[in-house]
Design a protein around this nucleic acid. Structure first.
Lengths: 121, 121
DNA sequence: CGCTAGCCAGCTGCGCTACGCCCCGACCTA
DNA sequence: TAGGTCGGGGCGTAGCGCAGCTGGCTAGCG
C-alpha cells in the first residue's frame, strides 16, 4: 500500500508550513479559485489532500513568480489544468478511461469518509 | 519608398485613439515600462512611432487580457521582446547582422532628427 | 485658444491581515 | 456520569494599505 500517504488529510496549519503560504491567504484564495476546494469535516474545518497542495503551489507560482493578478491567475490555472488533463487522458483507451473514472469516484468517496473519521470525530 | 509611413510620428492624442488607451494611462505606463520611450521634441512633447504603438498594444494585452500586474507585465514584455529579437537575428549571417545594426543606428538617428523638424518646429 | 507637459492629491477596489468568536478535547471536581 | 473551565486551532469578515489610475492644476508653445 504505497499510496496510503495520498490519503492523508492535512489541516490548514500544516499546509501553510508546507507551502509557505499563510493560512489567511490560503482561505482567501479558496474564495477566488474554484480549483481549490478542500473537503471539510463535521465542524467545518478544512482538510487538504496532496492535490490541493499542488493547486496551492501552482497558484503561488502564478501570483508571486509570474505576477498575475488573481483574475489572470484564475484563467491561466484553468488552462494549465485542462492541458494537464488532456495529456493524462491521451494515455488511456476508452475502456481504461471508464474504469479509471469509476475507481476515482470510489476513491473520492472513501477518502471523504476517511477524513471525517480521522479528523472530524 | 513604401516605409515613409513608418517615419510618421504620432502625438499622444492620436495614439490614445488608435490604441484605445487614455493619455493619462499611456503617460503612467511610460514611467513603468522601459520599453515605452517615445522621443520628445524641442518643447518636450511626446512623439510616437509605429513601434511605440506596438509596445503599447502589447502592454495593453498583458495587463487587460492576460491580466498581469504591472510588474509581471514588465518581465513578460522583456521576454517577448527578447524572443522576437532572437528570431529576427537568426535570419541573418554575421556580416548581415553587422550591416543591419549599422543601418538601424543610422535610421534611428535620421528618424529622431526628422521628428524634431516635423513636429518640434 | 487648443494641445500638451509635469506634478500630485485623491479615488477605487484588489489582495491580504487581524480580530473576535466558536468548537473541541483535556483536565479537574464531585 | 455530569458539570465546569481553560487553552488551542480554526472560522469568517470588517478593515487596511497600496497598485493603478484619474483628474485638476499651472505653465509653455504655436
Amino acid at each position: 500500500m504505497e499510496n496510503i500517504k495520498d490519503k492523508k488529510y492535512y489541516p490548514i496549519r500544516e499546509v501553510a508550513q508546507l507551502t509557505g503560504v499563510r493560512e489567511s491567504v490560503i482561505r482567501f484564495w479558496e474564495q477566488n479559485f474554484d480549483e481549490l476546494k478542500p473537503i471539510k469535516n463535521r465542524v467545518g474545518q478544512r482538510k487538504y489532500m496532496k492535490k490541493d497542495i499542488d493547486v496551492i503551489l501552482a497558484i503561488k507560482k502564478l501570483l508571486y513568480d509570474d505576477e498575475y493578478k488573481i483574475s489572470g491567475a484564475q484563467k491561466r490555472l484553468k488552462e494549465l489544468l485542462e492541458e494537464a488533463a488532456g495529456e493524462q487522458m491521451e494515455l488511456f483507451t476508452f475502456d481504461e478511461k471508464m474504469k479509471n473514472r469509476k475507481l476515482n469516484e470510489i476513491r473520492n468517496d472513501l477518502q471523504e469518509a476517511l477524513a471525517m473519521l480521522e479528523s472530524g470525530g
